[in-house]
Design a binder for these strands. Structure first.
Length: 847
RNA sequence: GCCCGGGUGGCGGAAUGGCAGACGCUGAGGACUUAAAAUCCUCCGGGGAUUUUUCCUCAUGUGGGUUCGACUCCCACCCCGGGCACCA
């Protein structure tokens, strides 16, 4: 750490810019004046800006910081714009790392967590973010998690929470179950990317996200324009809606086996089905082989395929393979006998685990059927172009909007769309099929066999079975002293004082549920709690939430594009159906900021490439740290941390400080009186013009474009321009200096708030800058008198010239032709066309 | 394979059809200083001509196209990052 006055970073000389002093001073003043505390007030326009709540672990680094710096600029700009701003902060405090750390350090997860929260909060306060700290919440507190339990009970009542035995993803390192969404890279744990997820069959709690699948999909339309397209697209893919039909095929001549039910989105092509293909793990596969003529050949193949089909990551590269079961199915539409195969590319988890192969109209089926010499039959012909022939077909014709049916009995001549409708109806009438839409989205498995989470409020009684804990008994508290080993059964299960309880119904002995909830439950609704954080009667007051919601701007990493943001949307819809809120989407606008990297990879403790936020604050001050993360890259892009570049931001702030300090005395003496352009000197006009031009562009960069980096560049440029006019004592009246320097200060305020306050005070204001509105741009003062027009000949730049603003085209052309550089290139040739963009450019096109 | 992003000096990046490289970093040179730090000034994409002033030319991943004019719009391709991945 640099000593003050010795090296660059700490180089505050006596009377110079001293961020440590200034920042502490203004943070104190803001707290005293309660500047960032806001209340719901329907008479004022509101703005709810929020950064995703952090999981407090390790040290806060500049990656975290950047997220909050972006949010704080938005919050401060909106405040200056007169909005009643809600800008809260809290802690995602439950979770495995706390428990693992507790096991390792032989302490309690609460102690570890609270230490981290203390650390994180200290750093956030050190950076002067404009949070309403009264609203701080921590999800591991009973005051918070009791409402997780309350919501769970509401969902239980509505059968949106249910229990079922299921094959689950089990991470041996976490010693717990993972949601599908937490399994990454085709079978690895999202927290331990080197650890393979195992499959285990366990009794689990689920929330019925699939009940909202259509709404989750349809309401994405409401988010258009407000959310990044790639996020809504990822959610759309994740939900994976496929409208289609299920059709039962009877199995020919196998006693007790069948029927086989398949799922298809193209029932219209069913007359072209060449085979039924089962997933290797389909229960019928084994059954059909019993007594099959090809049994001896097929059985070993099936056994082999069942083993290999587990490895999902190989699916993409895996050769499509299959074998004949020796059995046949009957196409219910035409009683055709088609072979039943087993194929390694058919997934048991999707649809019914069985498909019909229609080679002429599905590329994958075509490849499979060609490989095994299964027949190909065209049943849809294109409306235009050459007629398809089954023999020559190399690419399947899978168009379903343009075409007409052939070889399809009574359906010949129909369009595929018509055929889908009619054939589905027929299947339903005859009872062998029905229209059905399937989804990739699964119900949300929320059970975790760990301690540090919300206990699921349910007990099991020998007499009454599963009984919900009554609301009045909430919260079900975590036992204070669990045995944490990280091995074996869940810690709650091995804590008798927790497990043993009485049945709320009969009073007899009962056992508590020992699973805890996934921590994504906590983050699914926390932003509602901020509106009413201390309510002990309800999760929140609907009226307060009604005022603040939806969140006007949510800011966080793209990593939460599916998990957190999908669950939050689900939770919102459930709360709406409970009558608590009226809106259907919690977040109006979403911004996904880039990561801060060092050495090309994201900062992480394990890689040892973190740049600590607190260190930065000590070395350069919060304002320099904030400014740099905003300046170094546009907010949506990744930012490569550079120790050298941050010096530039530090230098700039010093430069501004010196400039204003130099003129503070003369500016302070100014008594009222706005600067105007009428009596101004050239030097004054230049300064006022540049200041107001900068203001115009900075305003738009802040509000509409979010180009904070170029906004800063503009303010830097303005600072350079003012320096260029030095000494201001010559030819610049104090009131003009005042206006220009005040604008400079106000434009910096959202980004470097401490310094801006200090400068504002130096310029003679007794009241805090926090009371000041964003300045109004003055068009009159910004107007240029002369503009430089580039002159092109045949589109190539040949000269520039100064003309009065608003000059007539003819005059501009005449002046341009007088320029030697232009005349030389025109060289007497005829001008066939001249393009004049007023005050912008002239292009002369020669014949 | 499919779907999104992205590709501009030594580096981070500006420029949303109108002067490519704003602003910052790095580097070089200079001023101030006993000296250093800090500060201030000048230069900084390539090639060429001219030599002390400029001028020409090439250049925004590659190749085409639209346009008076393209980093920007269109088509094809290459590379990098991310997401999905036999979804029936």
């Amino acid at each position: 750490m640099a000593e003050q006055g010795t090296t660059g970073a700490g180089g505050a000389t006596a009377g110079g810019y001293d961020p440590q002093k200034i920042e502490a001073k203004w943070q104190r003043r803001w707290a005293e004046a309660r500047v960032f505390e806001s209340e719901a007030d329907p008479s004022k326009p509101k703005y709810y800006v929020l950064e995703m709540l952090p999981y407090p672990s390790g040290t806060m680094h500049m990656g975290h910081m950047r997220n909050y710096a972006i949010g704080d600029v938005v919050a401060r700009v909106k405040r200056m714009r007169g909005f009643n701003v809600l800008h809260p902060m809290g802690w995602d405090a439950f979770g495995l790392p706390a428990e693992n750390a507790a096991i390792k350090n032989k302490t309690h997860p609460r102690i570890w967590t609270n230490n981290n929260i203390t650390q994180f909060e200290k750093v956030l306060r050190r950076f002067g973010f404009s949070y309403d700290w009264r609203r701080e919440i921590s999800t591991c507190e009973p005051e918070y998690y009791r409402w997780n339990q309350w919501f769970f009970l509401r969902m239980l009542e509505r059968r949106l929470a249910y229990r079922k035995k299921s094959l689950v993803n089990w991470c041996p390192k976490c010693c717990t179950v993972l949601a599908n969404e937490q399994v990454v890279n085709g079978g690895y744990c999202w927290r331990h990317e080197d650890t393979r997820v195992e499959m285990r069959e366990i009794e689990q709690w689920f929330l019925k996200t699939t009940a909202y699948a259509d709404q989750l999909l349809d309401d994405l339309k409401q988010l258009e324009g407000g959310w990044p397209e790639r996020v809504t697209l990822m959610q759309k893919n994740w939900i994976g809606k496929s409208p289609g039909a299920k059709v039962k095929f009877a199995v020919a001549g196998a006693a007790g086996a069948g029927p086989v039910e398949i799922f298809t989105t193209r029932i219209d092509t069913i007359y072209g089905a060449s085979a039924i293909i089962l997933a290797p793990t389909h229960p019928l596969a084994t059954k059909l082989l019993e007594g099959s003529p090809t049994r001896s050949e097929a059985a070993p193949k099936l056994a082999k395929m069942r083993q290999t089909s587990v490895k999902t990551e190989d699916l993409a590269t895996m050769e499509k393979e299959g074998f004949f079961t020796g059995r046949y199915a009957l196409n219910p539409f035409n009683e055709e006998k088609i072979p039943i195969w087993v194929g390694n590319f058919v997934l048991m988890e999707y649809g019914t685990g069985a498909i019909m192969a229609v080679p002429a109209h599905d590329q994958r089926d075509l490849e499979f059927c060609r490989k095994y010499n299964l027949p190909v039959r065209v049943v849809v012909q294109p409306l235009e172009g050459e007629e398809l022939s089954a023999e020559k077909l190399g690419t399947a014709f899978d168009e379903h909007t343009e075409g007409k049916l052939v070889n399809s009995g009574p359906f010949n001549g129909l369009s595929p769309e018509e055929a889908i409708a009619k054939m589905t109806v027929l299947a339903e009438q005859k009872g062998f099929g029905r229209g059905e839409t399937i989804y990739r989205l699964r119900d949300w498995g929320i059970s975790r066999q760990r301690y540090w989470g919300t206990p699921i409020p349910v007990v099991y009684c020998a007499k009454d079975g599963m009984v919900a804990v009554p609301d009045k008994d909430l919260p079900v508290l975590l036992p204070p002293n669990p045995k944490l080993t990280g091995e074996g059964e869940s810690p709650l299960a091995s804590t008798p004082e927790f497990v043993n309880t009485t049945c709320p119904k009969c009073g007899g002995p009962a056992r508590r549920e020992t699973d805890t909830m996934d921590t994504f439950v906590d983050s699914s609704w926390y932003f509602y709690r901020y509106c009413d954080p201390h309510n002990d009667k309800a999760p929140y007051d609907s009226e307060k939430v009604g005022y603040w919601f939806p969140i006007d701007q949510y800011i966080g990493g793209i990593t939460h594009a599916i998990l957190h943001l999908l669950y939050s949307r689900f939770w919102c819809k459930v709360m709406r159906d409970l009558g608590l809120i009226k809106h259907s989407e919690p977040v109006a606008r979403l911004f996904t900021q880039g990561m801060v990297q060092k050495g090309g990879v994201a900062m992480s403790k394990s890689l040892g490439n973190v740049v600590g936020a607190e260190e930065m604050a000590q070395k350069y001050g919060a304002d320099t740290g904030r400014l740099y993360t905003l300046f170094a890259a546009p907010p949506e892009k990744d930012l490569e941390w550079s120790e050298e570049s941050i010096e530039g931001s530090w230098r700039f702030l010093n430069r501004v400080y010196r400039l204003i300090k130099r003129h503070a005395g003369s500016v302070r003496a100014v008594k009222g009186g706005k600067a105007d352009a009428v009596s101004a000197s050239d030097k004054e006009k230049t300064l006022l013009r540049k200041a107001h031009q900068t203001l115009r562009r900075v305003t738009s960069d802040f509000e509409t474009r979010w180009h904070f980096n170029s906004a800063i560049a503009l303010v830097m440029k303005l600072t350079n321009d003012i320096y260029e006019q030095e000494p201001l004592e010559q030819g610049v009246r104090p009131e003009v200096r005042k206006e220009v320097l005040e604008l400079l200060t106000l434009m910096l305020a959202p980004m470097t708030p401490h310094l801006a306050e200090e400068l504002w005070e130096m310029l003679g204001h007794g009241e805090g800058l926090w009371k000041v509105s964003w300045p109004a741009f003055n068009q009159e003062l910004a107007r240029e008198e002369q503009v430089e027009i580039p002159v092109q000949v045949n589109g190539r730049l040949r000269a520039r010239m100064k003309v009065a603003v608003g000059s007539a085209e003819a005059d501009v052309v005449r002046l341009a032709l007088e320029l030697p550089a232009v005349a030389q290139h025109v060289n007497g040739k005829r001008i066939v066309k001249q393009i004049y963009v007023p005050d912008k450019l002239l292009n002369l096109v020669l014949g």
